[in-house]
Amino acid sequence: MTVIKIGLVDDHVLFRSGMKALLKENKKYSVMLEADNGEDLIKKLNKSTLPDVLILDTQMPKIDGGSTAKWLRNNFPQIKILVLTHQEDAETVLTMIRMGVKGYLLKNSSVEEFSDALLKVANNEIYYPEFVTRHLVHNINIDYNLAKLNSREVEFLKLSATELTYKEIAEHMCISSRTVEAYREQLFEKLQIKSRIGLVLYAIKNNIIEI
């Protein structure tokens, strides 16, 4: 069994101790690094033994979570980040997503949800709970000049980032439900994406959508 190496970055020692004890119960994880903040993490990271997943808080002294995630994206993009924080405001959530974090979770989440999120992030999947996707949907504007898609694909992408059902999208675009399904499958195949939220995230990362 391949052991997944975990790094903990949080300025609360008691919280880190609790997380370490929780992770120790599962043999597939090994906590190999702890840091008080981003500055401490940068000092402790060893290029030869990097963690697979970093569990990162957002509010920390010296170098906070957002700046830490940005530094990691530029220096060690292979490290997957799961944010674990008390902050659920749109500004913080969207900042961390722009920095490429794989998962975002609140500290009052259940152990089961945390375990699910950590496993998904470790497997290079995305884990965003409902409040995160809600922030994404409510803070989207599309710049048509930046899009590398045709106008109808961009229109479909924009509507996919709303709360409309696919049937309602078809009505809005004056096309059949089957045509909407075709647009969706074309974009899934073209962009190598498997879900509706994946379309939105792709557009954000490629500057088609600004949040």
Rank of each mutant, 00 (worst) to 15 (best):
S109H: 09
Y128E: 13
L136V: 02
P77D: 15
E88C: 07
V101L: 05
L157P: 00
A117M: 15
A122G: 02
A161W: 06
E88L: 12
L191S: 07
T2G: 15
M60G: 01
V200E: 12
H135G: 00
T162F: 03
K148F: 14
E189K: 11
I42T: 10
S177W: 14
K107F: 08
V137I: 10
V101S: 04
L187D: 12
M96F: 02
K80T: 03
K47I: 05
Y29C: 02
W71H: 14
K205G: 12
L187A: 10
D52G: 04
L118K: 01
A122H: 02
N124Q: 10
L187E: 10
V101I: 05
Y127H: 05
D36K: 07
S151L: 14
V101N: 02
M19C: 04
Y183A: 01
I81L: 07
Q87L: 04
H86A: 12
P61H: 15
S160Q: 11
A35T: 01
R184H: 06
V31C: 05
H138T: 14
L118S: 02
E39W: 11
N124W: 05
S17I: 12
R134M: 13
L105E: 11
L14Q: 15
K5W: 04
I126F: 15
N139E: 08
I81E: 06
K43H: 05
T179V: 09
L54Y: 02
S110K: 12
G65N: 02
H138K: 09
M1Y: 13
Q59R: 04
E189F: 12
N139V: 01
K120H: 07
E125Q: 11
E113Q: 13
S151H: 10
L106F: 09
F76T: 07
L82R: 04
L23N: 03
N141L: 11
L72H: 02
Y202I: 10
G66D: 11
M1N: 12
K194H: 09
D143C: 14
I97G: 02
A21I: 13
H135V: 00
V101W: 01
I81M: 14
V53C: 03
K20M: 08
I197D: 06
K27Y: 14
L33W: 00
H135F: 01
G38W: 05
A122C: 03
E163A: 10
G38L: 06
G38Q: 05
F131M: 14
D52N: 03
E130P: 06
L33A: 01
K5V: 02
